[in-house]
Amino acid sequence: MEFIISNLLNGLSFGMVLFLIAAGLSIIIGIMGIINLAHGALYMLGAYVGWTIAVHNGLNFWLAVVVGGLAAGLAGLFIERGFLRHLYKQMNEQVLLTFGFVYIITNVCLWIWGGQAKVPFTDPALSGSLNLAGLMYPKTRIVVISIGLALAVGLWWLQDKTRIGAMVRAGMDNKEMIMGLGINLGRISMFVFIFAAFIAGAAGVIGAQLWGVYSYMGLQTLLFALIIIIVGGVGSIQGALTGALLIGVIDAFGKALFPELAMFTMYIVMVVILIVRPSGLLGRKV
């Protein structure tokens, strides 16, 4: 029983980090129609900046989360205003451009922080374990699960229940109509993109509690995010959450029960979903 609960929690915490990575990308791809392959690199940038604040300068961990998010948001602003706004609806160009930014951001990070990995870090108050009905479980993982759930609820509310969420969705369905109604869609797109980049950067610091920071995480996290979006469905926060938790739990039990298949578990799930339900579990039709 302890084995099942412990791996379930491991899967949930891993899945929540995956959700934090994928949530912003899901919004950008599904709602704005932009393929931003630099999303993982923004996650990494946030993680490195967070490490500088929390470990190198010994400041508050939660300050590091905010500053990491702001750094990624700023980079997002640069990418969107400087380049992507000229390439709306041009998917090939978006892919090439943002993949180029993966290399640029990765090399800038290598240049500033070097290639040496940074050890996982957290707030001193979160070190150690909590007793969950006899099962000792790390506090950091419980915090990651809680933050992921809170973000999922917040994003769902923002996307489905607010006026700005409605404007964004309407803009993607009929750009001309929404602009004809006097709404500045360009500005809304910019804010959504920066917001998604902020989430990626903040997620980088939150995820660093479990994964640390290292120089190739930009591509690794991008791959994770794309798998989550394919499994959960494009453009849906609920889909990203479902996909992330499903992948997280299957990955945890896969590693524990069939470690020799660990390299493929995520991809097996993705292939099955693509065959059975190509639009993903809860995909939104764009």
Partner: peptide, 17 residues
Amino acid sequence: QIWAPIGTADFAPYIAS
């Protein structure tokens, strides 16, 4: 004997097993 892919993001499931 357990073999983990290089770049494994989470070792907790391996440790649990």
